[in-house]
Computed example of a mutant assay.
Amino acid sequence: MKRDAPPFENGDEVTLSTGQTVELPAYTRATMSGVVLPASRTRVADLLPPGLSPVRAGFGTGAVGFLSVEYHDIGRGALDPYDEFAVILAARPDSRTGVASLSVPTGIEGYVWYMPVTTEPARAFGDEIWGYPKVVAEVEITEEDGHRRTTVTADGERVVTMAVEKPPTVTREETITAYTEMDGSLLGTRGDLSGEMGAWPFSRRFAYSLGDHPKAETLRGLELGDRAFGRFYADGEVVFGAGNAV
């Protein structure tokens, strides 16, 4: 994996192909929920780019995060609100030693493998600045009786449906680290999250089902478990800096 300089730096103003201009670091306000599921570590490794290794969450076990996000404000009005779903493979750079740990409520330090969003500017925002694998799709998010339900449909086929019970929350700050590929280089992006957050470890108070989309078939092959390492919820501000070469 190349270690070229990242395409942008904090302080840059980036004009997207869709016409919007965003300043880095990018301020966002969002509500998110998700789960971290056990998976086959070997099969997770097969989906990672060179330079990253899957976390060890047990003998032969890795982890995969499902994250549902409603973005209410992006760049202080630079983009219209949009919804998003992310599949994140728990991983860390090969250069770091030791056994990685799972982080809840911020999900996991990991590689963003799939990220459907609901608008073309949202796709350009993630893809053109950080290399996120965003595609425009249908992401329907509803909330009822303390449960947040998300259904993702792409190319006319259902990918996944997820429902997560909201855990108790407190006001706190956390850091998110996401890895992506851009122009043949591996980038790491830090997101600083502050607001109301909650997590519940080793939970069954969630449900998910996979559809018939090819991405769903790949996820089936990861041997995902039905008891989560944790479920989580957050509502607040997330500030994303420029990506750094890993």
Score class of each variant (00 low, 15 high):
27 Y>C: 04
70 E>H: 13
65 G>D: 08
66 F>H: 10
78 A>H: 08
65 G>E: 14
61 T>N: 09
61 T>E: 15
24 L>W: 01
70 E>L: 12
80 D>P: 04
49 P>A: 08
55 V>D: 12
48 L>W: 00
25 P>H: 04
60 G>W: 04
62 G>W: 04
47 L>F: 04
77 G>E: 04
29 R>V: 12
47 L>E: 12
66 F>N: 10
78 A>T: 03
81 P>Q: 08
46 D>V: 07
72 H>I: 05
82 Y>M: 01
46 D>N: 13
28 T>V: 00
39 A>W: 07
66 F>V: 05
57 A>H: 02
42 T>S: 15
62 G>K: 10
39 A>V: 09
37 L>F: 06
41 R>L: 04
45 A>T: 02
79 L>N: 09
55 V>S: 09
83 D>M: 05
76 R>G: 12
73 D>M: 03
28 T>F: 01
68 S>R: 02
79 L>I: 05
82 Y>W: 06
82 Y>L: 00
72 H>M: 15
64 V>S: 05
77 G>Q: 06
36 V>L: 13
60 G>N: 12
49 P>W: 01
43 R>W: 13
75 G>A: 06
77 G>N: 06
38 P>Q: 11
64 V>I: 15
47 L>I: 06
28 T>Q: 06
85 F>E: 03
28 T>G: 02
52 L>M: 01
59 F>N: 14
29 R>F: 15
58 G>A: 04
51 G>Q: 10
34 G>W: 07
72 H>L: 12
73 D>S: 14
29 R>C: 09
69 V>W: 02
68 S>P: 02
37 L>Q: 08
74 I>M: 05
52 L>C: 00
25 P>Y: 04
67 L>R: 11
25 P>R: 02
75 G>W: 00
75 G>T: 01
51 G>K: 07
85 F>P: 05
74 I>Q: 03
67 L>W: 15
29 R>H: 14
74 I>V: 14
32 M>L: 14
71 Y>K: 02
64 V>A: 12
25 P>K: 03
40 S>Q: 12
34 G>H: 06
27 Y>V: 11
71 Y>V: 01
35 V>A: 14
81 P>V: 03
59 F>S: 15
76 R>Y: 15
51 G>M: 06
52 L>R: 00
44 V>W: 01
61 T>G: 03
71 Y>E: 05
27 Y>P: 11
78 A>L: 06
61 T>M: 14
78 A>C: 03
83 D>V: 03
80 D>Y: 07
32 M>P: 00
72 H>C: 04
33 S>P: 04
60 G>Y: 09
75 G>S: 05
36 V>Q: 08
84 E>K: 01
50 P>L: 11
42 T>Y: 12
62 G>Y: 05
41 R>S: 13
30 A>L: 14
80 D>Q: 14
59 F>E: 14
85 F>N: 06
42 T>D: 13
56 R>A: 15
35 V>L: 08
51 G>L: 05
81 P>D: 10
41 R>G: 14
58 G>S: 10
45 A>V: 00
65 G>K: 10
